[in-house]
């Protein structure tokens, strides 16, 4: 345990802006995991307000999207978000969804829905035909996540992607200590029937973006706070992330 403590101290002091309580002599990792809070300050993603906010991403998206724009929602589920966007932001909204029952719910809501498998990509959707393409919580469930990411930035001027961050400290610790695939409040399915099959961290996505000349135009974490410069601290402390992606056109030229 001593070694672990010094490793963590080194990691923290090197890459993060917060400090452990100096009085802390020993880290009881099991206790930290049980209590659900890291002995650090300044990053309260566990406030009650957030715990009650089931779809915090929807609020962020509603704020972000320009009135009267066109929105393609990939994996739109039962169409709640699109319904709100059409109503409040007067968008031209189109959903894509594979699940039969969800599709039927969309029809009941009066949301235009296209039944298709996202893993087949957005073939047939012309370049730049939407202002925004949204992918909420769906990226890790896809067999071909790269293809969809690339396609959404082909079809849309901007991509809005939200996802659970597997770099989140609780997930890291749980795997480290328990030696089992982590189960958290927001990722509650066991390994054998979780829909998330492509697991990645915020850092991974950032790496991809840099390689592809894609910029994180805006980034938001679970508590709705935005961050502008990605740090290891975000990757460790953000449970869920939403990023607005845009192709870096300057780089292209």
């Amino acid at each position: 345990m001593k070694d672990l403590l010094s490793m963590m101290r080194a990691f923290v002091s090197k890459s993060m802006q917060f400090k452990f309580d100096p009085a802390l002599k020993e880290i009881d990792l099991a206790k930290i995991l049980k209590d659900g809070s890291l002995p650090v300050s300044g990053y309260d993603d566990d406030s009650e307000e957030n715990a009650n906010c089931e779809r915090w991403q929807d609020k962020v998206i509603e704020n972000e999207i320009r009135e009267g724009s066109s929105v393609l929602d990939l994996g739109c589920g039962t169409g709640e978000l699109l319904e709100r966007l059409v109503k409040h932001k007067k968008v031209f909204g189109q959903g894509i969804e594979i699940d039969e029952k969800s599709v039927a719910s969309c029809v009941e809501r009066g949301v235009a829905v296209f039944q298709a498998d996202l893993d087949e990509g957005l073939k047939g959707f012309p370049d730049g035909s939407f202002d925004y393409v949204i992918l909420e919580e769906t990226l890790p469930t896809l067999k071909q996540p790269m293809r969809v990411l690339t396609d959404m930035l082909r079809v849309g001027s901007r991509g809005i992607v939200s996802f659970p961050n597997f770099g989140y400290w609780k997930i890291r610790l749980a795997l480290l200590i328990e030696g089992r695939m982590p189960i958290t409040e927001r990722l509650s399915a066991p390994w054998f029937n979780t829909e998330n099959i492509r697991l990645f961290t915020l850092r991974d996505l950032f790496d991809w973006a840099q390689n592809e000349g894609v910029i994180f135009e805006k980034s938001f974490v679970l508590n709705g706070k935005s961050f502008s410069h990605l740090s290891d601290r975000d990757n460790l402390l953000a449970e869920e992330v939403l990023v607005v992606l845009k192709k870096n056109n300057k780089e292209k030229k």
Partner: peptide, 10 residues
Amino acid sequence: TANRHPVTYV
């Protein structure tokens, strides 16, 4: 859809 017109396809 290519005409930015909503469509429901099932």
